[in-house]
């Protein structure tokens, strides 16, 4: 059973991390439920979570948003989405998920995170198999938006 309370730590963590990293005030969009298979955004950070809750968290954004965020983090415009840009975007996912894991642990759901992977491409379908994902868009002003897909279950 996917519980709504699992997504709140990710929203709180995303707010604080994005505010600090991008220097903007993020806004929350409409929460929605997704089936086990969905079409992703063009650039996705995929993170694994293990422990008392387990599953995956996918941060999706457009290529333009990824370029803008990476440029801001690196401190200069990026010409191509190279290893440094990918690493910056991956680190964003790592920071949000790491902070969210701390918040989950405070609620008693101790968990660890696995290193991020980046998936880029159009019309990519991702299946979270048996756990439907809850999705919240986080609006980032001129940067665009990031969708947070949280697909977690309590470990039996």
């Amino acid at each position: 059973m996917m519980r709504v309370e699992y997504i709140n730590p990710f929203v709180s963590a995303a707010y604080s991390v994005l505010e600090m990293v991008l220097g903007i005030e993020p806004e929350k969009g409409q929460l929605a439920m997704r089936p086990g298979i969905f079409t992703t955004q063009q650039c996705n950070i995929v993170m694994g979570v293990t422990g008392k809750v387990e599953g995956s968290v996918i941060y999706g954004m457009s290529l333009t948003t990824a370029d803008k965020i990476a440029s801001h983090m690196i401190g200069q415009p990026i010409r191509t989405f190279d290893a440094l840009a990918a690493s910056a975007i991956a680190e964003l996912g790592n920071m949000i998920t790491g902070n969210a894991a701390s918040l989950l642990s405070e609620k008693g759901y101790t968990c660890q995170i696995s290193p991020p992977s980046i998936i880029r491409g159009s019309n990519v379908k991702i299946s979270t198999v048996n756990t439907p994902a809850l999705v919240v868009p986080i609006l980032l002003g001129d940067f665009g938006f990031i969708e947070i897909n949280v697909s977690l279950q309590e470990r039996k």
Partner: peptide
């Protein structure tokens, strides 16, 4: 220097 800030 880490993203994991859990007390433990």
């Amino acid at each position: 220097v880490t993203a994991m800030g859990q007390k433990n």
